[in-house]
Design a protein around this nucleic acid. Structure first.
Lengths: 339, 339
DNA sequence: GGCGGTTCTGGGAGCGCTCCCAGACGTCGA
DNA sequence: TCGACGTCTGGGAGCGCTCCCAGAACCGCC
């Protein structure tokens, strides 16, 4: 009367089959939603599953089957940590929401200094069916590398080194364009911008929107200073702009976090906001509403971002045809006191 | 010459064994760091693994073995989302760092409105070996429920409905105490506090620290207003405090995010900071350094928080004895301009 | 009646590991 | 010299599923 090695709790597929009066093949078919199962069997199986409280063993399904029933969320961090942070939680929430109810595990991976090779080996080693790659640094080779291995991936944020990698991004261009049009509608005539770094798509797209908005009205597009998504660099950029054009009357700042630095400099120099200078940020992060004065900014829906990312990947894994190669999510202007 | 069903890429343990000139049992022993393997075999196996680029199949290990080789990170969100966000990315980074190199998968779970039962069933169903539960709401029953099922867990943030659940927390009490002592050393004599909600341990511990610091010097501890970790409620609380004591000369605010609201109110009323009123926050989030004026605050190491959480769980899973039931992580005062 | 097709079913091999067992070596004390 | 014990090793069953195969049952249609 020996006890075998300790087993996981709960019933096996065999028992479901016995209770339902069918074979385990049929139970498996029902679980996986295959066709060629009679309505009678299907119902019997469902009843048995409910009765026994059966839940399939993930490891066994993965081992036996040809898919891993898991996707990875890869956070590819190349500096730019500050921008990533507020983003992060929201995206994750969206991903999770979209995954709810499906039997797909979410694995988390972050770029450790050491990995690189290891990470790629792991991802392409059959442990996951696909990956969500959130990479804010535009020239990050990871998305492309992964895509070339044939692993289905969706990138969050337009990759600069793109190729034909499917991606989801906020509509940064139109967000910026809208912000500039709004400033112009306010009667502003000398509109500067604090742009992001040139190697990040998010920065370049917002800059293009600003340029386009000014060009529409034949206004000059020379008041640009690039910065790096930190408050201090935003402050420095603002100083530079004021040196070049002390009489500017509006600034479009490509990120709320930089706008904070800019606000501080403007206030120190005695500019009234928004009377003397109107300021518009981007992101509508928590920083925007707590700024003094509260920041008018372009809102992007980070949770929707996560959901879109996930939806696109799952659709591809499900073998759906004619999926959009990329998706741009709408942005909207949130008006507060700074413009 | 038929091709079998498509298999995952990469070598199997059998091949490693062949190349190393040992049996697969021995390879398994090496991978799992068991004793009773000669140095010679161990090295041979390591060489073979490196040569072949072998990485063990997670599903197979889980299926065959008695453990899942995965832990869950459960984010139990009961409102208080705002506080969670900045925290979140940092903690995750720490968790991931601590997990690096071990063959343990990190599964992410968030409290969806629907789950509850499902989530508990999943966690206790053998899919994970243990769980990290980050729960900021002190009376959340989840930690206790999970602990009672026997699943090893570690809670991030002291649970109010504690029992004997192992937890890791920042030393909120001493952080607050230090902040108050600092304000007293500055010669402040009327020190108020904007405290967190009474149902969150993080709020209560910081409040106790403030109380203790004042009591040490025989100062009154009546200037308390509770708030809920949002900027607006911080502003409201500040107004209330000023109504009760227009001549206060210092405020200890239990979170940076509330301090922003308080700063705004003080400035609107014409108080000079720090000359008229010194303000000290808590968390040292990104908000603190971008505030105007930059906020003196109590820093907690969120990444270390994640690491400690993970270390404690893995140690327990490894069967280590005499582990501390709880851990408090040090905090430190970061001096900026607001005090 | 025969024959091709579609729908449904059960049997059983095998996914890649871990862990138990049996056994081959030592090494040491009686 | 002999066991007892600690160290090291390989063989092989079996974890709980999926998926291939073979075949039964039923449908028309010539």
């Amino acid at each position: 009367m020996t006890e075998g090695r300790s087993r996981r709790p709960g019933p096996r597929i065999e028992e479901v089959a016995r209770v339902a009066g069918v074979s385990k093949s049929t139970v498996s078919r029902v679980i996986n939603g295959e066709k060629y199962v009679s309505e009678r069997s299907r119902q019997a199986v469902h009843r048995a599953i409910a009765m026994l409280g059966y839940s399939p063993n993930h490891a066994a399904r993965t081992l036996a089957g040809s898919k891993a029933n898991a996707i990875a969320l890869v956070i590819s961090e190349q500096g730019s940590r500050v921008l990533a942070d507020p983003f992060f939680a929201g995206v994750l929430r969206g991903v999770h929401a979209e995954l709810a109810g499906r039997h797909v595990q979410l694995l988390l991976m972050m770029n450790q200094p050491l990995d690189g090779e290891d990470q790629i080996a792991y991802l392409t080693g059959g442990h996951v069916d696909g990956a969500l790659v959130v990479s804010l640094h535009g020239e990050d080779p990871l998305p492309r590398t992964l895509h070339e291995t044939g692993l289905p991936i969706v990138v969050g944020g337009r990759p600069l080194a793109g190729g034909s990698v499917p991606f989801v991004d906020a509509d940064n261009f139109n967000g910026a364009l809208g912000a500039v049009r709004f400033l112009i509608s306010l009667g502003r005539e000398k509109i500067a911008t604090i742009a992001g770094p040139v190697d990040m798509a998010v920065g370049m797209d917002r800059l293009s929107g600003w340029r386009c908005g000014l060009a529409e009205h034949g206004m000059p597009v020379d008041l640009v200073v690039h910065s790096d998504f930190t408050p201090d660099s935003g402050a420095l950029a603002m100083e530079e702009l004021l040196r070049r054009a002390p009489d500017l009357d509006a600034v479009f700042v490509a990120a709320d976090i930089m706008a904070l630095g800019a606000l501080r400099v403007l206030q120190e120099r005695g500019y009234k906001i928004p009377d003397d200078v109107a300021v518009v940020g981007f992101d509508d992060s928590v920083l925007a509403s707590t700024a003094v004065p509260p920041l008018t900014t372009v809102r992007q829906d980070v949770e929707g971002f996560g959901r879109a990312l996930t939806w696109r990947l799952l659709a591809e894994l499900a073998g759906e045809e004619k999926l959009p190669q990329s998706m741009l999510l709408p942005t909207s202007l949130v008006r507060r006191s700074s413009a």
